[in-house]
Design a protein around this nucleic acid. Sequence first.
DNA 1: GTCTATACCGCGATAGAC
DNA 2: GTCTATCGCGGTATAGAC
Lengths: 200, 200
Amino acid sequence: MTAGTAATDTRSRLLDTALKLFSEHGVEGTSLQMIADELGVTKAAVYYHFKTKDEITEAVAAPGVQELDQIIEEARALRSRGAQIDHALSGFVELIVRQRSLLSLYNSDPGIQRVINRAFRTPRGEDVKTRMKAVLAGENPSLADAIAVHVVFTGLAMVGGAPEYAGIDDDTLREHLLEAGRRLLGRPRRKRPDNHLPGR
Amino acid sequence: MTAGTAATDTRSRLLDTALKLFSEHGVEGTSLQMIADELGVTKAAVYYHFKTKDEITEAVAAPGVQELDQIIEEARALRSRGAQIDHALSGFVELIVRQRSLLSLYNSDPGIQRVINRAFRTPRGEDVKTRMKAVLAGENPSLADAIAVHVVFTGLAMVGGAPEYAGIDDDTLREHLLEAGRRLLGRPRRKRPDNHLPGR
DNA sequence: GTCTATACCGCGATAGAC
DNA sequence: GTCTATCGCGGTATAGAC
């Protein structure tokens, strides 16, 4: 169902290129000309696949937002508060490790934030960031807890995009991010991790 | 010595306006036209006070960078590692609370980061962010410590710019940021804070 | 010394030829 | 499905009014 016409191929190559350039120069610092040049086509050819630059930005952001949304729903279905936090945190960290630069873009680029807040208020009213923080902090959290969660949420995501850690392998990075997150959220050190990708 | 010609006044009003607009729309999302309109002058008038947009960005970023630099040097002059960390952390938090949006800009805007990395490699070789993280993490830190420091540094700064906490008073915010920072850095809870502005 | 008028070129975006 | 041509806005730049 996806072995791909030339168009689908160009489209996905375009999104890969866009994500790479967005991470290097920011969304607003990346021109359609740069994307077109990297792909070896003209600006207008890019416009065939996407009607606006915002649409490209949205398509780049979408997969991560969707995954976050799924993790949130899974976490909310769990019974104990501890299990909810554990699942949300480990899922979040897993996403950071797997996508690296994408999650940091969500917090470090005004251009992509504008698009996310406008395009993904769906499917459950509030935006993903708010909902994720709500799962981690619980209902009516104290100010201290709300702030700690905010620090964790933004801080962890930014590590994924930091060039200093680009060379660290996934398992090591995931372990350290989890440890930092648990410490700040006041969770006990865990023995057996809640593996997010069971058969890996 | 500074009661002010019209020019100095326009210049400082311009920087205030720029910071406000940068925080709302990002550096690259803010046009010289917006700044000019807000001041009631023309684009070319703005261009009289600053030769380029980068120069405006640099002037907006400068005070915070300078203060960070001073805090770092003060901390490095202390004898014990604990005192160094305490001073660097409390100075950093104090700056976040006092400037709110400015410090979050440093971490959340590709435009201002470009300018900071290019313009403020002075006065001591490495950039301020790297040097601050070095003070907090010590020499040859473990990967776990380096990552924890990275999370604290970016996470705390982002809270200052978060609209959710714009209404919180300075003392309360400072207290919670310090608490979160100390917990993540593994510092004991403190009794008497290292007051950064003694007579306040 | 402080500002306005005006023009230049690159960027996002649209229309239409091949 | 891709390209040329064109338009309005944004950063830059200069000439000149006061």
